[in-house]
Design a protein around this nucleic acid. Structure first.
Length: 478
RNA sequence: GGGGUAGUAGGGUAGCCUGGUCCAUCCUAGAGCGUUUGGGACGCUUUGACGGCGGUUCGAAUCCGCCCUACCCCA
């Protein structure tokens, strides 16, 4: 049966697995007839809802959610020189209203700095207004020329969380960068996704930023996926857009700013990091269905079992869990496979035998069966879900650890990369040596100041020129 | 950025070179009926397609042109 055409490709063939899981588990439908645009299935959208719900929970501690327009007038968009250079080849332009050419072209936001900051200039008056910390979760458009990929490289990013903060000083903005990195760590820890933080090299920083801190995850095939960035914008944009405030001494000062983004790539990482040959594995926090009850209804006990399953469902829902009961006319085994494919963390099998014993069979998606007393389910389920989360997290950490290493020479770097690893090397931070590293290994310098609990970042001499260098992350990227 | 391969029903394929009545086949695809139900049940009935536009032709899934889309490899 496994070699039937209906089977999911092995996770080992990650690219094939990823393409298949998206529609088999009903996450994205890639058949929308425009390049780089994809459709969220309801189930995928439900995952998105819970993931972004968690992101909102974290941000709402001290950010406020807002919403800015999708369209940006050309003159605003064109104000910041570096920013334009970075995005001009990727911008969609609205040029007509009906059949009438527009006098002012309108850009579909590729990111919202130039939509938001003119308004910030109006809103900011005094030091008492600071800091300002707002975010929005919106779609953005980028005319990608590279090959597009669902959830990873899109022409319409459907789920872009962008936070834009304003501060009185550069140092305060820097503190905010660190704060937002910590927030990102917490978010990904909730999703059981191990991350590595590094400072992007100058040539790879956000157009218009002083510096960019990036968050990467290591995918199953060893390629890295950038799943978050935090930018220190310094005064680049505040000078361009006149975002000034009157300080305590009555003087006008330029503000310092940060911006920070996370997109649906977080869901690509979630799916890829935890799934296996059978399908998705969702951490309970992100699972639209945390537990599915499969009633085993045979012959005369049919009604009894169904009633008990219904009761169990109601008890669990009342206790705050996301639970479904599967009463479809299918064999139990077929249901098991169906829910496993969709990554439901816990399956509760309830049949006559269990009923007689006053128990329910709990089967973890991570692979372990236990019996639970029906009388105490509401105490037991959180414990079991917690164990599932811990197992998922541990497995992801193991994978990440196994794909990280420290090397001290170009040869060793090449070998490590070819084994599908991400390596920490010492690099002098000169562009020339950086180019040598990237060209010879066909990889990218992710960043310096690599921070990870899984690998020690040692200082040493540059593996190209031998001058003093800094710990630098090198990998093949998505 | 450069190259390659491909698009046939919900999914997977054959047919294409060499145009021909009927456009086939498989599936844990759909609809319907019945028997089933502790790890992917089965029988019968049935639905449905040649990526799009244009061209050649008496006739196009097949030949030609343009476009769209997808996947793979290399920089």
């Amino acid at each position: 049966m496994d070699d039937d055409t209906g089977a999911l490709p092995q996770k080992g063939d990650f690219s094939a697995w990823y393409n298949d899981i998206l529609w088999r588990a009903e996450i994205m439908d890639v058949r929308y007839p425009v390049k780089g645009l994809y459709v969220w299935y309801p189930y995928g959208f439900a995952i998105r809802k819970h993931v972004y719900g968690q992101l909102r929970n974290l941000l709402d501690r001290d950010h406020e959610e807002t919403l800015f327009p999708l369209l940006i007038p050309e003159q605003e968009f064109m104000k910041e020189a570096e920013h334009i250079k970075g995005f001009e080849n990727e911008v969609y332009w609205v040029t007509h209203g009906g059949t009438t050419p527009l006098e002012v072209k309108l850009a579909l936001r590729p990111t919202s700095e130039t939509a938001i900051y003119p308004m910030y200039a109006l809103w900011l008056r005094s030091h008492a207004d600071l800091p300002m910390k707002y975010y929005q979760i919106v779609n953005t458009f980028r005319y990608e020329t590279k090959q597009t990929r669902p959830l990873i490289r899109l022409r319409e990013i459907t789920s872009f969380m962008e936070s834009h903060t304003v501060h009185a000083t550069w140092d305060e903005a820097e503190a905010q960068v660190e704060y937002e990195l910590a927030l990102t760590c917490e978010f990904y820890d909730d999703l059981c996704i191990p991350i590595i933080i590094s400072k992007r090299p100058d040539w790879d920083k956000f157009p218009g930023a002083d510096y960019t801190m990036a968050v990467d995850a290591i995918m199953p095939n060893g390629k890295t996926l950038q799943i978050g960035t935090v930018h220190h914008l310094g005064e680049h944009f505040s000078k361009t857009f006149s975002i000034t405030f009157e300080d305590k001494n009555g003087e006008q000062k330029f503000a310092s700013q940060t911006c920070y983004g996370i997109s649906e790539r977080c869901i690509a990482a979630l799916i890829s990091m935890h799934g296996d040959d059978k399908g998705l594995i969702l951490p309970p926090i992100a699972a639209p269905v945390q537990a599915v009850i499969v009633p085993i209804t045979i012959g005369k006990r049919h009604e009894d079992v169904l009633a008990a399953a219904e009761k169990l469902k109601n008890v669990l829902i009342a206790a705050g869990f996301r639970v479904k009961i599967d009463t479809r006319d299918m064999r139990p085994g077929a249901k098991y496979y169906w829910w496993e494919l969709r990554g439901v963390p816990l399956r509760l099998e309830l049949g006559p035998r269990d009923l007689d014993a006053g128990k329910v069979m709990a089967v973890k998606r991570t692979g372990e069966k236990t019996q639970i007393e029906l009388a105490t389910v509401t105490d037991e389920i959180p414990r079991v879900l917690g164990e599932i989360t811990a197992t998922i997290r541990a497995k992801a950490e193991e994978h990440t650890k196994a794909h990280l290493c420290t090397v001290a020479s170009m040869d060793a770097l090449g070998a490590a990369l070819n084994e599908g690893k991400v390596a920490v090397v010492s690099w002098c931070q000169q562009k020339g040596c950086g180019d040598v590293i990237e060209e010879k290994t066909n990889a990218s310098i992710l960043g310096t100041n690599a921070r990870s609990q899984y690998v020690s970042a040692t200082e040493g001499v540059c593996i190209v020129c031998g001058k003093p260098g800094k710990a630098t992350l090198v990998g093949r990227t998505y």
